[in-house]
């Protein structure tokens, strides 16, 4: 009797399901595993999962097609001479148990009001079954975070239409993280933050004004100096009237 496989679980991401398990202790190397799924009250062999090796897993995406249904799977270890007991997975509800991946987010600028466009991710599992896609990726929680001080708020965003994030501070960077939000599936992965700057504010003019003032006053001082100096020069070079020349006037 072979040891039964352990830790049988169904991992599901965007309605792509995979059955994983661990071989029981002291399982021989030449052991194969076979997977069955419960369909219409009868266990049926899963296509492509009849003879799997130790570290392989079983793709159940094509088997658990209906996201509104519930499924079970079981694994058995087999050698040429021996069989193990069958290990059963938990009951699996694709609709509520699958992990919702991040949506596709694009942020385009419109001055102080970034335009947010959220679209569902593309996935093999999602493409097949359209209705859950619309269910899953219809509403999103959108966390908007201002990078400057970390203050943030949440807002609701619906898919298919562009949403304006209004009344933001000008000239600041905002980062947007979008998470699919459904009332029936709590498992979801937020998107990467998408950051955008709002339109810049008018530059601070104080340094400019100050430097202009400084330059102006320097210029005035220079001009005064020039006037005084050139006055002296003129005095020295121009011959004074005879009556004045007797008076010691400049630097005399």
């Amino acid at each position: 009797m072979l040891p039964a496989p352990t830790n049988v679980s169904i991992v599901s991401f965007n309605l792509e399901h995979t059955l994983t398990w661990l071989p029981g202790p002291e399982t021989p190397d030449n052991t194969h595993f076979t997977v069955q799924s419960l369909r219409k009250n009868s266990w049926q062999l899963v296509k492509g999962c009849a003879r799997l090796k130790t570290r392989q897993s079983c793709d159940l995406t094509n088997t658990f097609k209906d996201p509104f249904y519930h499924y079970k799977a079981r694994v058995q270890a087999i050698t040429t001479t021996q069989k193990s007991n069958r290990s059963l997975s938990m009951l699996f509800y694709p609709l509520t148990d699958t992990l919702l991946g991040p949506p596709v987010v694009s942020v385009s600028g419109c001055g102080n009001c970034p335009l947010l466009q959220v679209t569902p991710p593309t996935s093999r599992g999602l493409q097949r079954s359209l209705s859950p896609t619309q269910l899953y990726y219809r509403q999103f929680t959108c966390k908007v975070r201002r990078t400057r001080d970390g203050s943030q708020f949440s807002m609701w965003v619906t898919s298919t239409e562009k949403t304006v994030i209004g009344y933001l501070e000008p000239g600041a960077e905002y980062c947007v993280t979008v998470t699919p939000s459904t009332s029936f599936n709590p498992h979801s992965v937020p998107s990467e933050p998408h950051c955008a700057f709002t339109s810049p504010t008018a530059a601070n003019t104080v340094p400019v004004v100050l430097s202009v003032l400084c330059a102006f006053s320097l210029l005035v001082v220079l001009l005064c100096g020039i006037v005084v100096y050139s006055g002296r020069l003129l005095c020295m070079h121009k011959p004074l009237p005879k009556t004045l020349s007797s008076v010691p006037l400049c630097g005399g």
């Binding site: 102080n112 908007v144 201002r146 203050s151 943030q152 708020f153 949440s154 807002m155 609701w156 994030i165 209004g166 009344y167 933001l168 501070e169 000008p170």
Partner: peptide
């Protein structure tokens, strides 16, 4: 008057 569902609003 300004309507917004956001919790952080910067009136322009």
């Amino acid at each position: 008057v300004l309507d917004s569902s956001n919790n952080l609003v910067t009136p322009p």
